[in-house]
Amino acid sequence: MKTRTFAAFVAPSLVMMLIFIAAPLLYVFGQSFYLTTPVTEQMTVETCTPGFLTQNCTQETKSLPKLDEAGRIVTQTQFVGFGSYRAIIEPAKAWAAISTFDYRALMAIDFWRALRFTLMFTFVTLPLVLLVGLGVALAVNNTARTLRGPVIFVSLLPFIITPVIGALAIRWLFVSDGLLNNGLEWMLGHPVSMFSQGWTIEILMMFYRVWHVAPFAFIILYAGLQTLNHDALEAAMIDGASRWQRLRYVIVPHLMPLIIFVTLIHLMDAYRVFDEVVGFRAEAHVISLQYLTYDFLIPDSTGNRSISRAAASSMLTMVGILILLIPLLRRTWAQHRGSR
């Protein structure tokens, strides 16, 4: 294919990605070094209240936002360097907390709290998703053919359900009068409240994510099992390999490329955990990095959105995902080089 034809075919998609992904990215990068604030001016305001014989007048100096002719608030943008980043990371406070091993003080800073949860969430769910997915794939491969269709149908339900709704569905089972909460109380013999402390919410969020993503791992690994070479299995049998050894040394190596694929996708998706925080309404106890940015973007009580802080926090989020992905991307690149 000639370069010109290639360019013509790729252009629409590329232009969309440049305008709506690359350009905002650059803009956010630039914006994270600037701070836009409303211009305020000091004004002396005299307020008078009627009194006996004379008015009681008090004068106070207020800082009020400056308005232009059209009545809009005048804003100014100034270069603050890493100011917004500092406001989010709070390096001095964080360092003091780290050097004195004060875990609580570190977790009092939103960014570190979010980072801790996001990383833990990603790395705890990853092995669970792979294990459950592989387990279900092996079990389905074991059952009668007529049962496979219905099982796949049921398994796909948690995968395609809207994330916020899926989180809500599990939340409703565990709210104070929910079914499973009642069951837990009956088993433990004392009142249980799943949503009044952080760690129980975290467990539910991880449970939800495994429930949501395991079907994906299952379908992919199941497809991989279909291409398994039976001769290799038989050879292993003849060599006296036990069932476990066959799984460990024949089946898993065969599935390895797919396991890496699932890992890659899961790292990307789990790192930007967001819908769970909304669905479980966990924002008071647990927040994720993407929720931190979202929170900056929602207008506060005076209608301001702190765009520059959001820019800084989203840049920090991005750095994290790049660090996570670099080993996998390098591997893909090397494979491409090797395959040519």
Binding site: Y27, Q31, F274, R305, I307, L329
Partner: peptide, 19 residues
């Protein structure tokens, strides 16, 4: 590869740019 990196981007990053 660029598309793969773009796929990994948290959507809040992009929304920060659009808003």
């Amino acid at each position: 590869i660029a598309a793969l990196v773009f796929r990994a981007l948290p959507h809040s990053v992009l929304v920060t740019g659009y808003l």
